[in-house]
Design a binder for these strands. Structure first.
Length: 578
DNA sequence: GCCGTTTTCGGCCCGACTGTTTTCAGTCG
């Protein structure tokens, strides 16, 4: 089983335990364990081999045993018997918003509800409303949840969610009652996908702000409206929450609703150890609970962190992966800023499947403030993308050289290629062609299903090709659409480091590949990075900002990002490399 | 099930909103 499969198995165990009504802390332990395994940057096999998996916080002896069994392809009797003891239909029912394990169990016990269809019938017949603790409104909500569940369960790409959120934030800030307003949640943490939008506002008056929020033109339904919180749903299923708090609580609320959950738990534990209970309302001194939470004069998040003896942790690092320890020890990274990016590699023109010409791309790059632009059209194996054969590649190379010599005013062009990694790991163009170019991006675009060992060997062979400069979108995932292919990234990263090959952050909002979770450890081991928008039009160049987000989230130091070098620096680097 | 400068046993983050209730359970984040 791959690591991702094991993570799913642990998550499944947690869900099944929940449906059985078992100890909530045990359930949480499995959720924590799954999360720890998922975000762990070390190589799983190496840790198992060295008997060091237990050093990962959240993974103890019981989980080690189960993870080891699953990794070696064994059956897990514990999971099998859990599956046998829970009606499979209940898991699906659990996904309906507003229904948790307890109510799902209650309906199962009282009415024998064991599928979405049975649930719908039971709601329509009035049977659900008759259960003690349930009522007509509950049944109604369940029915609407069933109807819309596909749309409600959907997550959204960060890039798209951000585009929805920006104007709402501006709208909030323009209200006369609003003193401060920020986006919170996973959007603020720059997660690759976003479940819903969270806004936190400090205002002199609550009601007009809430009113403005719930009556926005795009709102389809209002799902909650209280004294401090309102929730709305837009067409398409995206949900947005607004919290309005007094100004002295703004820093606490903003921090709380930014999360992550894991980060908040860790910070609250730290507060408890120092004699304070921390909540979105403030800090309560433990031996003076009567007094209630107060702001302690804290005006912003930096003040909150300082109060707890920490440097300010940027939102994108708040994932519960050791950021508190780093903030305590002065080891937080200096994060990449968009202005530090001097150019990008891996972009397409109308020579293959891009929409715009070489000249238009160079001009657009200049417009964005770039000094240089790398062109990497597809190679011939990507037939569907009008990939270039050796002759066309060399022709484009001439065109690039001529453009650079013409003094046209656009960004300096580097002549590259996105060369297909064929099924056996060989490259799609002649060695002489590849050697003539400024750089070579190698990518997998075919035979995704060949299995982990074969895929790993295939990609490593491509990395070892003397002309390879950059590995493109190393897992092939399309967020919310297609899973990554099976590949041992730890081995691929090792090979890249050993061969001086860069791995890209493919900044297309649907890819964001290599994932931020991998970068911190990989960079510590010496891996270098290139941020590449994989632009297929002039507009697509703007995606580089999504790549900057991922670099920040991955703790990547600028010194290891090729795009941070100036034109002369990149020329020098490529020359030394080739 | 995990974890330990107050603990190897007994804790495990904290609060808002809803719908059902006459004080609270369930869900969510």
């Amino acid at each position: 089983m791959t690591k991702a499969d094991i993570v799913s198995a642990l998550e499944e165990i947690a869900v099944l335990l929940e449906l059985r009504g078992e100890n909530p802390f045990k359930i949480r332990a499995y959720q924590t364990g799954a999360r720890a395994l998922e975000t762990m940057e070390e190589d799983l096999d190496a840790l198992l081999e060295a008997d060091e998996l237990g050093k990962v916080p959240g993974i103890g002896s019981a989980l080690i045993e189960k993870i080891a069994t699953l990794r070696t392809g064994g059956e897990l009797p514990f999971l099998e018997s859990l599956r046998d003891s829970v009606e499979p239909g209940l898991i699906e029912i659990l996904e309906i918003p507003g229904l948790g394990a307890k109510r799902v169990r209650k309906m199962h016990e009282a009415l024998g509800v064991d599928s979405i269809e049975a649930l719908q019938a039971a709601c329509e017949s009035g049977a659900v409303a008759g259960i003690k603790g349930f009522g007509a409104k509950t049944a109604e909500k369940i029915l609407s949840g069933i109807e819309q569940r596909a749309a409600y369960a959907k997550r959204h790409l960060w890039w798209q969610a951000d585009a929805v959120a920006r104007p709402i934030l501006e709208g909030l800030r323009s209200l006369p009652q609003v003193k401060r307003a920020e986006i919170a949640g996973s959007l603020r943490r720059l997660k690759e996908t976003v479940g819903d939008l969270d806004f936190v506002v400090a205002a002199s008056e609550v009601e007009p702000v809430m009113e403005w929020f719930v009556s926005q033109a795009a709102v389809e339904s209002v799902t909650a409206q209280g004294v401090t919180k309102s929730s709305v749903r837009f067409a398409g299923g995206l949900q947005a929450d607004l919290r309005v708090v007094p100004e002295e609580q703004f820093a606490f609320a903003l921090h709380h609703f930014t999360g992550s959950k894991e980060h908040n738990v860790a910070l609250r534990q730290r507060a408890l150890a120092r004699g304070y209970s921390l909540s979105e309302w403030g800090l309560t001194q433990k031996d003076d609970a009567e007094a209630g939470p107060t702001g302690h004069g804290i005006e912003n998040e930096a003040g909150l962190f300082e109060f707890l003896g920490l440097a300010e942790i940027p939102p994108e690092l708040r994932e519960g992966v050791g950021e508190l320890e780093a903030a305590e020890g002065g080891a937080l990274p200096d994060l990449l800023e968009p202005e530090m990016v001097k150019g990008v590699f891996h972009n397409h023109t109308d020579a293959s499947d891009g929409r715009d010409t070489l000249e238009a791309m160079a001009a657009a790059a200049k417009e964005l403030g770039f000094d240089y632009l790398g062109l990497a059209d597809h190679s011939k194996a990507s037939f569907q993308a009008n990939g270039l054969d050796d002759v066309r590649v060399l022709k484009q190379l001439e065109k690039v050289r001529a453009y650079n010599a013409s003094g046209s005013g656009g960004a300096h062009l580097f002549a590259g290629i996105e060369c297909d990694i064929l099924k056996d790991g060989s490259l799609d163009l002649e060695d002489a062609t590849l050697a003539a170019l400024d750089y070579v991006v190698v990518s997998v675009h075919s035979a995704f299903g060949i299995g982990e060992a074969e895929m790993t060997a295939r990609v490593i062979r491509a990395i070892e090709h003397p002309s390879t400069t950059i590995l493109g979108h190393p897992t092939g995932r399309l967020l919310l659409r297609r899973e990554a292919y099976a590949i041992d990234l730890a081995k691929v990263i090792d090979a890249a480091i050993a061969n001086g090959v860069i791995i890209e952050i493919n900044a297309n909002p649907q890819r964001l590949d290599l994932d931020w979770r991998m970068w911190r450890r990989a960079a510590e081991r010496g891996l270098h990075c290139a941020i590449n928008p994989d632009a297929h039009s002039t507009k697509g160049l703007e995606y580089y900002r999504a790549g900057v987000n991922i670099a920040r989230k991955g703790w990547l130091p600028a010194a290891q990002i090729l795009n941070c070098r100036d034109l002369a620096g990149v020329k020098r680097w490529l020359k030394e490399r080739r």
